[in-house]
Design a binder for these strands. Structure first.
Length: 570
RNA sequence: GUCCCGGUAGCUCAGUUGGAUAGAGCGACCGCCUCCUAAGCGGUAGGUCACAGGUUCAAUUCCUGUUCGGGACACCA
């Protein structure tokens, strides 16, 4: 809302500068704008708030934009705007169309990295929330006027990938006739067996080694030793197969990553870049980053390992970057990745992580600071897990048994729209009860259908006018025909959309958009239910239709940011 | 033990960065279709904003403490 210059807080009292507020009221009875100037300055002026308010009002010049002012409560000054200003958002919305709610370019360049799940299996419902939230953030930040790049960090180096490869390889051995004992630390699931079959199709018996040979010298599998056992198997396989271990490795990586891409694509989460962790190894960037920290004195040797002194930056303990066996840790990759991101020129980078990564925040920020980057530019958002409910019963998930619910299964079940909406409807860092029954229900209780239905209803009205003499210009010229409180509320709600987008983007709180859209849809349904749009008086009719069109545009734009469709008929 | 996130209507949650009489949906109860989609709308009931201090003209909001939940704290990835 444009604040008239004579209400400029800066001019009120040059001696006392307190953060005076002039804001949109939440209660229409308080007018359109309200200010607390009088209360803020009552003390310094040595007079009661209400008396000061009176003095201020007596000295205000008249304005065409302001219809009335009043003093209320403890000393608020309420301002009622002229009617034309109330309905101005209708024209603004219709003129801007799909761009309504977007903001001018800020010149700021941002990156949002999200999902980044290890490519060791299909995405499950936990990843889905990160995907929905991240994708929505990207849309919000773009609408805010920032330049945004979306990225998926592919963990294609490290132990987990080797465990995946050995798992596939063992299933392959099984297929070619070896009698094996599958390690307890290996990856379960039908997809592993399928990859083993593919490996067999590609290489026939060429990769076959004896299971006894593979386990020679490897410690027995057991509760305590399952890690050592599987690491031993990997080491043996690499030795026996030579470069051949790359076959199950690459096959699994490529296949699973393709599946993830496909899955996310159907979910409307697209990435500008898939960034390979391996590339940090091969390009020498990990060594470079460590050398940089070394030169600044942030590293030291102890017990054969190389440590980063993260405690110097607020961490509660130092962290290993190179283990005593010479391998760099996952954290070392992270450090190099931070440098890589900032060197690409982003002003701010956003990480969307699962809440289980909470413990990494301090060390990653520490690394950024140690590398010489302002840690404020590195923003981490945690996403809590979603708990699925069906008919009031919690849906059990277990990754161990391989019986987890995949994102794909969830999408097949409740559909993309409900998935996207439900995932982001709550604050990201809080637990989400995902009610599957509600998500699939086609009633007003389901917020997705409720909002979409408002859109469809408006489309239906427009459709019945097909070929008639609806004239938007006439409607906009007669907005004074809108007289009811419902119409004032609705137009005001439309006018709030740009600031809702801005705020959601600035705070990275996507859920506020969901609440806004529900409120907007409710305002519409109330109005629609009590007001006939297609009336005889063409001025009134076209004014109402213009309002309806503005509502439709706003809903469509909001849903678009959420990645939810805006159907024309339901 | 340390660190995060929470505690708001019976349930699930909002609460515009400290404002006026704390909101919505569900659930409960009572109503509304000869009319552009009833996949909708209206009304009623329901609250010591976990507790105690502090800052302020003003605290659900900020600070401290207490308490109760949930989670995180590897030479793992």
């Amino acid at each position: 809302m444009q604040v008239p210059v004579y209400l400029d807080p800066e001019r009120l009292d040059p001696e006392v500068r307190k953060p005076v507020q002039i804001e949109n009221t939440r209660d229409p009875q308080h007018g359109d704008l309200a200010t607390n100037v009088a209360m803020m300055h009552a003390k310094s002026m040595g007079m009661p708030p209400r008396a000061l308010a009176e003095l201020i009002l007596d000295n205000l010049p008249a304005s065409a934009e302001i219809e009335a002012t009043e003093i209320a409560g403890p000393g608020f000054i309420n301002i009622r705007l002229a009617k034309a200003a109330t309905f101005a958002p209708i024209a603004a919305c219709l003129a801007a169309g799909a761009a309504f709610g977007t903001h001018p370019a800020t010149g700021e360049s941002m990156q949002v990295e999200f999902v980044s799940a290890n490519p060791t299996g299909p995405l499950h419902v936990g990843h889905g929330r990160g995907a929905a939230y991240g994708a929505t953030l990207v849309n919000l930040l773009k609408a805010r006027g920032h330049t945004v790049q979306s990225e998926y960090y592919v963990n294609d180096a490290g132990r987990q990938m080797n465990i995946l490869a050995i798992s596939v390889f063992l299933r392959y051995l099984e297929i070619v006739g070896e009698s094996i004992r599958f390690p307890s630390g290996g990856y379960q699931g039908d997809y592993i067996t399928e990859l083993g079959q593919t490996l067999h199709h590609q290489h026939a018996d060429a990769l076959r080694v004896g299971f006894a040979d593979l386990t020679a010298g490897v410690v027995e599998d057991g509760e305590e030793t399952k890690d050592a056992h599987i690491d031993g198997l990997i080491e043996r396989a690499q030795k026996l197969l030579g470069g051949g271990f790359e076959f199950p490795f690459q096959l699994a990586l490529n296949h699973i990553l393709a599946d993830i891409k496909d899955d996310l694509g159907e979910f409307g989460a697209t990435f500008d870049q898939w960034f390979s962790e391996r590339s940090l190894v091969t390009s020498g960037e990990i060594d470079q980053a460590l050398a940089q920290l070394e030169s600044k004195g942030h590293l030291y040797q102890q017990n054969g390992a190389l440590w980063f002194r993260s405690t110097a930056f607020g961490d509660d303990k130092d962290r290993v970057v190179r283990r005593d066996n010479g391998e760099t840790t996952y954290f070392a990759s992270d450090i190099a990745y931070i440098a890589n991101k900032f060197n690409r020129g982003f002003d701010r980078v956003v990480y969307v992580w699962g809440a289980d990564h909470h413990g990494y925040i301090v060390r990653v920020k520490a690394a950024a600071e140690a590398l010489g980057f302002d840690p404020e530019r590195l923003i981490i958002r945690l996403v809590q897990f979603a708990i699925l409910y069906r008919d009031g019963e919690r849906v059990q998930m277990s990754t161990r048994s391989g019986s987890f619910v995949t994102l794909r299964e969830l999408r097949d079940d409740v559909g993309k729209d409900a998935c996207r909406y439900f995932y982001v409807m709550r604050k990201a860092d809080q637990h989400l009860d995902f009610d599957l029954s509600l998500a699939t229900s086609q009633t007003k209780d389901n917020p997705v259908y409720y909002i979409q239905y408002a859109h469809a209803r408006i489309c239906r009205v427009i459709e019945t006018l097909e070929g008639s003499d609806f004239d938007q210009a006439r409607g906009l010229a007669h907005l004074d025909a809108l007289t009811s409180q419902d119409e004032v509320d609705l137009a005001t709600a439309v006018g709030r959309f740009p600031e809702i987008v801005a705020k959601a983007a600035d705070t990275l709180e996507a859920h506020t958009l969901c609440y806004y859209l529900q409120d907007l849809a409710a305002d519409f349904h109330r109005w629609y239910n009590g007001t006939r749009l297609l009336v005889e008086d063409l001025n009134v009719r076209d004014a109402r239709l213009s309002l309806a069109l503005a509502v439709r545009q706003t809903i469509a734009n909001g849903l678009s940011i959420l990645g939810v469709s805006a159907p024309e008929a339901m």
